[in-house]
Write a protein that binds this DNA or RNA. Structure first.
Lengths: 189, 189
DNA sequence: CTCGTATGAATGAATG
DNA sequence: CATTCATTCATACGAG
């Protein structure tokens, strides 16, 4: 930012963060953040912000609009992507560094898929809309502190080892063997 | 639906994006709907179907399996996602950089509880979709040709004009004049 | 111009 | 139904 942030037009055009969005209507296929915008976003991210709330997104977007055209969704996507890729990269790194030992995804093959069947829907989908009186305390975000401290890695890792052979317990009852007639109409509903 | 039908013909035709899992049991990534499937689903959605029942899901899935591999859960998720994103994108909110010098926070109109914001995503207003109820006996397919019906949704068209008329007002409370070295601009959070 | 990489955008799949 | 994660698609840029 210190490096010559002009009012709104000029924007350093070095690197990929050229600021052609802010001036001289170039094409606008997709948002191209300016270096200042990236800096602010990165600072926020480094400060711990990972999943900004809507309010935060709006505020960030408003502030960043000073540096150039930006929309809320850009901020939203930026954080999504940044977080995702951080994680992705970390996974690869750990996979690369510690391959001799456990990679933290030592998948215990405990058939995690068995949740897919039979209760109410074809697959899980706990759709319990019945009146539960469980009052969820609507917890709004602090709005002032974004240090969510979510450095926790969720070790979820649902095995995506999806082969084409019976990964899902429930079998499609639709006999694909015989292709439906051509005159199909969705009058089946 | 959204402008993102960026895949009416090139669904993963380059390398790793194996794309078509429609036939010939190839890799089993995630479901990659074909254009026809998307069209049918979209039609159903536009016709008012929002939360298909188990039975309907089953039938839809059966019908759509003609166009390619599909499972019931795909249909279910499709509707869930479509509905959710429809809503979320309908939240563009009057948040606009043009005139937010106005106290836009007076919209907390009545003494209703402030349920606004706080956890909602928005951005990207698209078309308008009135809310209808489920229409029974939908007749969708034109009996034989299912890929010539519409071509009008293919437009990418990010309705955002690429103007730089941000005309950023003066509500930038961050001290740009005597900006501290860092992070003070983030104080708005 | 082509290709590789970084990243914006979209969406399938879950989870709570 | 709201929110998040993971994966993929699409595009901008720089290198060669």
């Amino acid at each position: 930012m210190e490096e010559g942030f002009s009012s709104f037009c000029i924007k350093g055009s070095h690197g990929r963060g050229n600021g052609n969005n802010g001036s001289s209507g170039t094409k606008c296929g997709r948002w191209n953040p300016t270096t200042e915008q990236v800096k602010v976003l990165t600072d926020l991210f480094r400060s711990g912000l990972r999943t900004p709330s809507t309010d935060q997104i709006q505020k960030i977007s408003t502030q960043l609009s000073f540096y150039g055209k930006i929309e809320s969704k850009n901020v939203f996507y930026w954080f999504q992507n940044h977080k995702a890729r951080e994680r992705q990269k970390r996974r690869k790194v750990s996979f690369d560094e510690n391959d001799h030992f456990i990679s933290r995804d030592n998948n215990n093959n405990n058939n995690i898929n068995n949740k897919i069947s039979s209760s109410k829907r074809f697959f899980e989908v706990k759709e319990y809309q019945s009146d539960q009186r469980v009052i969820e305390t609507l917890q709004l975000f602090p709005l002032n502190s974004f240090e969510e401290t979510d450095q926790q890695e969720k070790l979820r890792f649902h095995g995506n080892e999806c082969r084409e052979t019976s990964t899902f317990p429930y079998t499609i009852s639709t006999s694909e063997l015989d292709h439906p007639p051509l005159d199909l109409r969705l009058s089946f509903l």
